[in-house]
Write a protein that binds this DNA or RNA. Structure first.
Length: 542
RNA sequence: GGGCUCAUGGCCUAGUAUGGAUAAGGCACCGUCCUUCUAAGUCGGUGAUCGUGGGUCCAAAUCCCACUGAGCCCGCCA
């Protein structure tokens, strides 16, 4: 829960005593005052409503109230807004302050099959998931992240078999594994014997063959470690890894099947559950388990320790998630709240991505190219920077840019990856945000430290103050709708307000310096707070 | 064939959840501002009947219906 002087709420509560209004009838206004009340639905005439409200609202934080057509616009004193921010930062070290929520939240993200390097399609999952985790955590929930490692499906078995067939005596490297995986998928199309072989291995695996399990986990681990390494470049570290096979080996899947036995139907010896006219198969003819069964067991496991489960999933999982949700809530003893956060696929300009066909842009590739481009620009713009500094900045720009470009787009929209956009560092971009921060740092490094709140701020200062003050509203929205893009857009707007202020107000040596330095310090604080939520790395200079 | 999702200037995105004041940014293009705190910046300009057609409403980018186009799903894959 967020703690701050919520003027919007105060306005709502007071007005609601005079006229029955909805909390949403008051909104943050970007052009007409600070908050706006829509009065279309009220019965009285606008000027009567205006008079009634104006007469009863005499709070200190209100600067003025104006009637404009069917809107009543509230202007908040900039000094009240900035005092709210300043007090919170000085007392709690952050704005807004939070109250720890007792709910434990688990965000499951990435969870991609360890059958190949992470690419720009899958990275959307990780970036959204990690940002949601940071946002939820900032809001005051006790939260952590988890990766569900598939080490028991046909894909991973194919990965293992591919290595044996094509690179048997060679080292277990990601390159060799990926090559074998792609070859075996080509071969499968011509040779159905391979499918039988995979199924036989799956059966052996489920019966608990120690050696096979070990070998497959080793194989998967090689790829998983490389995925972890790639994610680390974007500052994404997942708290816990859970291996899918555990749910088979320790009997959880078996228990799920028992608990569901009243609802299970058979086709041959395979078991399925019927939802509507759809058959959801939980086991194969040979008795081995299928992904839905393992996923049910996994969710029951998660619910043992967490109150709110957030699953970040590709849109291809929509139907599956719906079925899973139905089974959990109707046929099983399941009490956690589950949110499914779907994201649209990322495609390349040349078309769909495919690991099996080798048509991907890997994260490592994207990262390296972004660093390279960034170094080129730094050398051009900042010839005085030395190698170490260039390295620090280019790495910061690469991870921030990649994250920002993906997180800023609403998750449910499809995304086409374009190099020209990924490598553009102007306008709506991570460097734009980083640059503004560096400017504020530069000034602070050349000035003294002041803490002064004034009663008088000009238009540019007011806009910046309002952008800072309204941070909690965007933070709350991004939690309520699990939308990190709201933070990305908030941040962009905040930076624009700062740039406006920076260009129009001289700070060092100006008579107004003290109060402006105070604004700068608070700006820095909120920038750090919000940037961290979406993984933008701020540097003192870029 | 059935289901889900998306469609906003030449291109990319916000706004749609909660209908409401001139549809907001970025890229590209044209022009402005460096003897002042980082020009990866600023300011201005060109450019959108918000996919099409209906409907509801005092009011529709936003809600409803139909259609068109794109993506995804409809496996004893995950």
């Amino acid at each position: 829960m967020l703690l701050f002087d919520d003027y919007k709420k105060i306005l709502y509560e007071k007005i609601n005593k005079i006229y029955k209004i909805d909390e949403n009838d008051i909104e943050i206004s970007n052009s007409h005052g600070d908050f706006t009340l829509k009065i279309f639905k009220l019965r009285d005439k606008p000027d009567i409503i205006y008079k009634n409200i104006k007469d009863k609202l005499n709070d200190k934080f209100i600067d003025k109230i104006e009637l404009d057509g069917n809107y009543i616009n509230f202007f908040i004193k900039p000094s009240s807004m900035i005092k709210t921010v300043n007090d919170s930062v000085n007392t709690f070290g952050k704005y807004p302050n939070t109250f720890q929520d007792t709910s434990r939240v688990l965000i499951e993200h990435t969870s991609s099959n360890p059958t190949g390097p992470i690419h720009v399609g899958r990275i959307r999952n990780s970036i959204i998931g990690d940002s949601v985790f940071r946002i939820i955590d900032r809001y005051g929930y006790r939260s952590c992240t988890q990766y569900f490692v598939n080490d028991s499906g046909k894909q991973v078995i194919a990965l293992y078999l591919g290595h044996i067939m094509y690179h048997k005596d060679e080292e277990l490297t990601v390159e060799n594994l990926l090559d074998g995986y792609q070859k075996i998928y080509n071969e499968r199309e011509k040779n159905s014997g391979i499918n039988k072989e995979i199924e036989a291995l799956a059966e052996k695996y489920e019966r608990g063959d120690k050696e096979l399990i070990n070998n497959i986990q080793n194989t998967a681990s090689v790829v998983l470690e490389s995925i972890k390494k790639s994610l680390k470049k974007l500052d994404i570290v997942i708290s816990t890894y859970v291996w899918e096979s555990n749910f088979i080996l320790y009997g959880d899947v078996y228990n799920v099947l028992n608990e569901l036995s009243d609802y299970l139907q058979s086709e041959g010896t395979a078991k399925y559950i019927e939802i509507g006219d759809k058959k959801i198969f939980l086991t194969r003819d040979n008795g081995t388990s299928l992904y839905p069964a393992r996923d049910i067991a996994y969710h029951l496991f998660k619910a043992e320790n967490f109150d709110w489960l957030i699953d970040v999933l590709g849109e291809d999982h929509k139907d599956h998630a719906k079925d899973l949700d139905y089974i959990l809530n109707n046929y099983l003893d399941f009490n956690a709240r589950v949110s499914y956060l779907f994201y649209g696929f990322v495609s390349l300009e040349s078309g769909k991505m495919s690991t099996r066909k080798g048509r991907i842009v890997t994260l490592d590739d994207l990262y390296d190219k972004t660093v390279e481009e960034s170094i080129k620009i730094i050398k051009e713009k900042r010839p005085e920077y030395d190698g170490k500094k260039i390295e620090e900045i280019s790495n910061g720009i690469a991870s921030s840019s990649i994250r920002y470009n993906i997180v800023k787009v609403n998750a449910n929209k499809p995304l086409t990856f374009k190099w020209s956009e990924a490598l553009n560092f102007e306008g709506d971009s991570a460097p734009y945000i980083m640059y503004s921060y560096a400017r504020s740092c530069s000034i602070l490094s050349k000035s003294g430290d002041y803490n002064e709140i004034s009663n008088d701020y000009n238009e540019h200062e007011k806009k910046l103050i309002k952008a800072m003050y309204t941070y909690p509203y965007y933070l709350k929205n991004s939690v309520d709708y699990l939308r990190p893009d709201i933070i990305a857009n908030y941040l962009l707007n905040l930076v624009k307000r700062f740039n406006e202020f920076y260009l129009n107000c001289t700070i060092i040596g100006d008579p107004e310096m003290k109060k402006r330095i105070t604004l700068l310090k608070l700006y820095k604080k909120i920038m750090e707070d919000a940037s961290n939520l979406i993984g933008i790395k701020l540097l003192n200079s870029i």
